[in-house]
Design a protein around this nucleic acid. Structure first.
Lengths: 135, 135
DNA sequence: TTATAAATGTTATAATATTACATTTAGACT
DNA sequence: AGTCTAAATGTAATATTATAACATTTATAA
């Protein structure tokens, strides 16, 4: 709806697949350098190789960057089918990160941007606090 | 309401005042190092001096960190009177950054966090796109 | 005034991200 | 197949952002 993702995913390249593979296997965000470390055995040597793959994967909606952590996480919903806005709930205690999506948030942001005459391209919504088990 | 700010502001220290002074004079976010540069003439020498002041000013609600820019901006509303949630509208074309606040956003986030049984401590809402003049 | 917490000053270093440039690969089109 | 082009890759160097560790000074309040 607002992030103009491609309708169909193009085939991923070698490095894109490697990076996607790493992020898919874990349920938490990883730094670019942590991804690089875990791919040293696969021939990756330089940060840029990871950053470039991440950039592309983010454009495809397969990966999200968590700004407040300088880290990256695999998208957990089918971006080609459901292009709704995404927020992240980040537990300051256990470090758990969950992707959530709620229509009323979308409505709220629509109000705010409309009021300002603003065209929204990339929303960043990161909610830090205490998750159900930690509070 | 959710960011537990102090009711009354304590007196700022020397470095806190210097940093606050710089951020107050401009209307855009500045990196910690840009702040440092502009305070070299005032005796500041090390990044840490700026980062420490920023950390405190952020706790006091006088400064906000813009995560997607790794930069800091002076708060534009009276944080001791109006503790409502804050979002930032960031123009990708002209670089303009505006602080906005809207009750319906707050409602939306309340819904999302309630649904997840989550206690919100620090929301980060950064909306990148095109401002009225650039679109 | 003395105990204590906060703030400061300084050096070194860690962590994150990008620039620049050469080369290779994949797709689209004769 | 050959040719063109855009995208992706490989590599080294460097820029930018942030923190650790430690010594010292200042402000606050008991």
């Amino acid at each position: 709806m607002m992030e103009h993702l491609p309708d169909k995913l193009p085939k991923l390249t070698k490095n894109q697949n490697l990076v996607m593979g790493v992020l898919s296997k874990v349920d938490h965000p990883m730094s670019a350098y942590a991804i690089l470390d875990s791919l040293k055995g696969n021939g990756l040597r330089a940060p840029l190789q990871v950053y470039r793959a991440l950039e592309r994967l983010e454009m495809l909606g397969l990966v999200h960057r968590i700004e407040c952590m300088n880290a990256f996480v695999a998208c957990r919903h089918d971006a080609t089918k459901d292009d709704s806005m995404v927020a992240f709930i980040i537990c300051n205690s256990c470090g758990d990160v969950k992707e959530v999506s709620d229509n009323s948030v979308e409505v709220g942001l629509h109000n705010v941007t409309k009021k300002a005459g603003f065209i929204l391209q990339k929303p960043t919504i990161e909610l830090q606090g205490l998750c159900r088990s930690c509070r």
